[in-house]
């Protein structure tokens, strides 16, 4: 897709706002619509767009697949880790009220942390699946677009 000048310029302009929007959806999920699932997908879309319009090698250089695969596990570990931390702080599993002196603040921290875990796992899984599909030899020919 190297000669698609318009696509390249437009995606270069679009990718930073997409990433920013994903972060907004991620950390604003308790105030507006959205949360970790949606934010993770939007975050991954920015990378997938980069991989499609530029090339898979460019994407590999930006986010090496073996590192993305570690993030797949990291998100789930953060989520479960919050639950285990609650156990050590004297509460039930995933009872966020123990995270701070004020129960409401604890709930707020807990929701932010588990949503972050969800977002990391979802984004990493989506990018990994894209890598797995796109790394296979046949690609979409230019004439098919």
């Amino acid at each position: 897709m190297h000669h698609h000048l318009i696509l390249r310029v437009v995606s270069k302009m679009l990718i930073p706002p997409i990433l920013l929007y994903a972060l907004y959806v991620q950390f604003h999920g308790d105030f507006g619509p959205g949360g970790g699932f949606q934010a993770g997908v939007i975050f991954a879309v920015a990378f997938i767009l980069y991989g499609i319009v530029f090339s898979l090698d460019h994407l590999r250089r930006a986010v090496p697949p073996h590192i993305v695969r570690r993030f797949v596990a990291l998100g789930l570990l953060i989520y479960a880790g919050v639950g285990v931390a609650n156990l050590f702080l004297g509460g039930n599993f995933l009872d966020y009220s123990t995270l701070a002196h004020d129960a409401k603040h604890g709930q707020h921290y807990g929701i932010l942390l588990v949503e972050l875990g969800v977002g990391i796992t979802v984004a990493a899984v989506m990018i990994s699946i894209f890598f797995a599909f796109a790394s296979r030899p046949p690609t979409i020919k230019d004439t098919d677009w």
Partner: peptide, 11 residues
């Protein structure tokens, strides 16, 4: 938190 959906989902 204002978004009840998030409260139910995450907490």
């Amino acid at each position: 938190v204002p978004n009840v959906v998030t409260a139910v989902l995450a907490s």
